[in-house]
Design a protein around this nucleic acid. Structure first.
Lengths: 150, 150
DNA sequence: CTTGCACCCGTAGTGGCTACGGGTTGCAGA
DNA sequence: TCTGCAACCCGTAGCCACTACGGGTGCAAG
């Protein structure tokens, strides 16, 4: 039961060591106790919290959403309704993004398949990009800085 | 046929005015001529180029990919094979992202649907996030700073 | 003459990390 | 005991693709 170093915590959760320090800086992870030499000393609770965060990040929740989820996860105020609200909002975003990406996939696949590969004077991909009908492709998605393989 | 101001160019292409200046700074768009008062004076060619860029960005191509596409689009060296290579690489990324998002969608939809909405002691979403099986969800996707509704 | 708009510029902020440089400590092997 | 190097410490800068901000200039209408 002796405490973990940051390196062991990072390895145990699969989170980059620098990311652990970053989470501490933005107060997503609490500052742990320090050893006499100033090294961070983590407990089991830290591992559980960081594993939760990692899993939520993998599912594309934003840091702010995770902050909310973590506060709702405190035993005193387990509110399934509020959690579901956050999850549902995120699900809606994921579905919108999915639809956008499917549209892109269609356009790209169709256009690329028409490419001969020859040094032709006209290229279907370039023609498609040059065709200036103003119809936007993405209906919904903002940039997401979310999905990340860890 | 008199030249456009930056405002008119932005409006004509649907690109944010500040983004046009940004594209000039990173040399994705050429510096246009200036009027006596120092205002940018754009020609038709600029509109075509910016419309091409916008459409490629909507399709999720990176700035660097667009740079390559633009140089391949020059009439002297229309190389359909190289264009197809870029498009195919991007299509592969889109498909990988699509698969990841579909996995997320499944997990989120299934878990959220099991939420009662009551202030229950245990919440399926929180339980799922706390469950520490180390299986990563995303196989492939790096962060993308790409897809953006304009 | 003032108001208001469109433009000019450089710089900083966004999200979520990741990398870098330079310093200190801990421990294992020779 | 010395040596080397890995692991930790810290602050800061860089990544992408913008977006926002603050402060200045020029010009026309009211």
């Amino acid at each position: 039961m002796q405490p973990f170093t940051i390196g062991r915590l990072a390895a145990a959760t699969g989170v980059n060591l620098e990311t652990v320090r970053y989470y501490e800086r933005i107060e997503l992870m609490p500052s742990p106790a320090r050893t006499a030499n100033g090294r961070r000393a983590y407990e089991d609770g830290h591992i559980r919290r960081l594993a939760f965060i990692r899993r939520a990040r993998e599912l594309g929740f934003s840091i702010e959403q995770i902050r909310a989820l973590l506060s709702l996860a405190e035993p005193s105020r387990a509110s399934c309704a509020e959690v579901r609200e956050i999850a549902q909002a995120h699900l809606d975003e994921v579905r919108a993004k999915l639809a956008d990406l499917a549209r892109l996939e269609n356009i790209l696949a169709e256009t690329a398949s028409r490419c001969s590969g020859d040094p032709a004077p006209s290229c279907p991909v370039l023609d498609m990009l040059a065709a200036s009908n103003g119809a936007p492709i993405n209906q919904s998605a903002k940039i997401d800085h979310r999905i990340k393989s860890i």
